[in-house]
């Protein structure tokens, strides 16, 4: 029994397995053209070898973590009580409280994002888009780039070369929906609806709300798909052509394809940037081995309508349940699941308990200095040719949904000899 427990409570792995390979090794879970998987897209890390060749140097891990912090600050600023607006459209009692959105030139919305390739227009033009469960509006850079376009890998979408493209009028319901989907009131230019979306780091896209045919695969084609045709796009979106929004709002891909896929989607992110995962719309595989937790309702006001909230009931390290009061998570305002944030953020008390127990169970390994936002680090320079043993970490979400993390979700390799616990604490117990 003890041996069995050990097998379940520890991961044994080669330290070098935490590093991505230089060549792409596609996952066998993605089978293009399969009838059952007709609505499935291949997911690749935008800076890995499975992505299209880079026009610029990929960011360092330190830069990715700095961008991650910027994204987290942005999400938490959006969910701050001072953002609440009453149904009458008036600011609530927190109106005098100032929200400082992070303004940090050089930081992107999140450099650790994953991309998918979709077709837009007739005939379809292939575009590499960041996929993001933390936002709603899908947008791409559009010709003639009236104000500004950044450099992207794919040819910039040209509406005039698509026979199915049209602009959307200011009077349409979709134009009105932009307010909640982007957080900004839409504009109007010669009766054409104008969107503007700005991210926490001041990156933005402004352009025309448009509709055209979205092609996910030959058998998954959606006419009259609403998206942003960006004429002024600035920020560090890398070489991608834009973003595909998988949030909960009405303009998200999830909502726009609800008639076909029933607001059901799934994804798998690969264990390293040198492999691939998938994003599937609809019930594309048997869900027998999937355990579910109910979405939690948010008490954070209108700005939280995009996010997917869940409740954490507990965390275990090496099979040992951490002593964390439920009030710790409640005081933090809940938990969201986000595909665009790299490192899981926990309330200070929860992170402290996690880090302390992890250190206790990892005490045979020499420690290493902190790295960026990661403060629980180890020096594995003497273990490059032998296996290391790390405790498992599991999260239990409401409804007794216990999720064991993969080893790739526990340690993140910093360099050839150092790796860190891939978690960080929030600085404030109430945010």
């Amino acid at each position: 029994d003890e041996e069995d427990d050990d097998l379940h409570h520890f991961h044994t792995l080669h330290f070098t397995s935490l590093f991505p390979q230089s060549l792409c090794t596609p996952s066998s879970s993605f089978t293009p053209g399969s009838k059952q998987r007709s609505s499935t897209l291949q997911v690749v890390h935008r800076h890995g070898p499975c992505s299209v060749p880079h026009l610029t140097t990929p960011p360092s891990l330190a830069e990715i973590l700095a961008a991650d912090e910027s994204r987290v600050e942005s999400i938490q600023a959006k969910l701050a009580p001072s953002y609440e607006i009453t149904r009458a459209g008036k600011r609530n009692k927190y109106k005098d409280r100032k929200v400082d959105l992070p303004v940090q030139p050089g930081r992107s919305l999140g450099s650790g994002n994953y991309i998918v390739r979709v077709g837009l227009g007739t005939p379809p033009k292939t575009l590499s888009l960041i996929f993001d469960t933390g936002s709603d509006l899908t947008w791409t850079q559009c010709q003639p780039c009236a104000r500004s376009c950044y450099q992207q890998q794919d040819p910039i979408f040209n509406p005039s070369s698509s026979s199915s493209y049209s602009n959307v009028s200011c009077a349409s319901s979709q134009c009105s929906q932009l307010s909640s989907a982007t957080g900004n009131t839409p504009g109007c230019s010669t009766k054409t609806c104008v969107y503007g979306i700005q991210y926490g780091d001041q990156s933005f896209s402004v352009g025309f709300l448009s509709k055209d045919t979205l092609t996910i695969s030959k058998s998954a084609v959606f006419q009259n798909f609403f998206f942003g045709c960006g004429q002024n796009n600035q920020g560090l979106f890398g070489n991608t052509a834009g973003l595909i929004g998988l949030g909960r709002d009405q303009l998200s891909v999830v909502s726009q394809t609800a008639g076909t896929y029933g607001k059901y989607f799934s994804y798998c992110l690969p264990s390293s940037s040198s492999s691939t995962g998938h994003l599937s719309l609809g019930r594309s595989r048997a869900s027998g081995s999937v355990i579910f937790t109910p979405f939690a309702s948010s008490s954070q006001g209108a700005a939280s309508n995009s996010f997917y909230f869940v409740d954490i009931d507990g965390i275990s390290v090496g099979g040992r349940a951490l002593s964390i009061s439920q009030s710790v998570f409640q005081a933090a305002g809940g938990t969201i699941v986000d595909s665009g944030t790299v490192i899981t953020r926990l309330p200070p008390a929860a992170y402290s308990a996690l880090s302390t127990e992890f250190q206790q169970q990892m005490k045979k390994y020499p420690v290493a200095p902190a790295y960026s936002i990661l403060d629980t680090c180890y020096d594995f320079s003497n273990y490059t040719n032998t296996k290391i043993v790390i405790p498992t970490i599991s999260f239990t979400f409401r409804g007794n949904a216990k999720v064991n993390l993969d080893a790739s979700g526990i340690l993140i390799a910093i360099n050839g000899k150092q790796a860190c616990l891939a978690f960080a604490g929030n600085s404030d117990s109430s945010t």
């Binding site: 059901y264 690969p270 699941v337 595909s339 790299v342 993969d406 979700g409």
Partner: peptide, 30 residues
């Protein structure tokens, strides 16, 4: 707000049943 980030989601099949009001996790998704 706590955030369950993408590093921790690696290799899991993460299922969003939005209409059903639930989120699922499956081991060995890719």
């Amino acid at each position: 707000v706590a955030i369950f980030g993408n590093t921790q989601q690696k290799t899991l099949e993460v299922v969003y049943d939005v209409a059903g009001g639930r989120l699922g996790f499956g081991a060995g998704g890719c």
